[in-house]
Design a protein around this nucleic acid. Sequence first.
DNA 1: AATGAAATAAGATGCAC
DNA 2: GTGCATCTTATTTCATT
Lengths: 154, 154
Amino acid sequence: MTSLDATDRRILTILQVDATLTVADLADRIGLSQTPCWKRVKRLQDEGVITARVDLLDRERLDLALVVFVSVKTNQHEGQWLEAFRKASALPEVVEFYRMSGEIDYLLKVLVRDIAAYDRFYKRLIATAPLCDVSSSFAMEQIKFMTALPIHSI
Amino acid sequence: MTSLDATDRRILTILQVDATLTVADLADRIGLSQTPCWKRVKRLQDEGVITARVDLLDRERLDLALVVFVSVKTNQHEGQWLEAFRKASALPEVVEFYRMSGEIDYLLKVLVRDIAAYDRFYKRLIATAPLCDVSSSFAMEQIKFMTALPIHSI
DNA sequence: AATGAAATAAGATGCAC
DNA sequence: GTGCATCTTATTTCATT
């Protein structure tokens, strides 16, 4: 668990946007030669700073035009209810799932093809556990979306 | 713009979780030989179904423990206001930004180190344009997070 | 469209310094 | 950290089904 220096951060900043770069190109960009650059990447992977290398897909091309944020309130905070509701995270349409502070108890980000698909999802969702209040907000337009984390350069 | 067959979907399902697989391994998994498998991956990249290959990083290790969802309401729907507010998407802490239907006009997902960092962000946010109502919801626990899209197997 | 083999180019990985 | 050797994989080609 070494701490990350400025060079590590520069490597990460690049790789979280484009992981197709060769080690040689990456090394060039950060002003290192191949070997130390490669060793750093390897270390960042081994230490779990880099958790995965994945392909990102075009949502529209995969027939998932609709992004829905589902706010859930409950009045049942017993362990058993929670255990049941957590199973909602297994629903494939749920891509993000948070327990929240404040008014809303849980927030889900859901990807579906269209309203009809959302309705089918909704029925499965409310079947997982008794929910007090469920509110669905539909995205009309995605203005920004990035998987890259905002790395501060210290 | 060919449509995606079942094999394409199987390839995508795998690659959006692990893009480190060699073509040979990928081909094995889907029961193809290297050449046609490689050609499919290439086509999916060229056609823009695969939009990028990126590294995913550990949020905690990068000192971004706090996930905040910011709901924004406005009473100003003129083009000029909108243009100004859209500039908020340039703030690095904003990783997702949606125009919504219903009660909330805009929803932002924001990643910051802690409450103090969020407060600094918040001041910059409200400086971009006159906002009618801004409500911040903090995530206490991330129960699920995946960049992989829920691909339906038809 | 896919297969198998095979050749070449490119890149990753490891070693000597 | 650098430079180089080696090994692995990607990429292309081709004959075949």
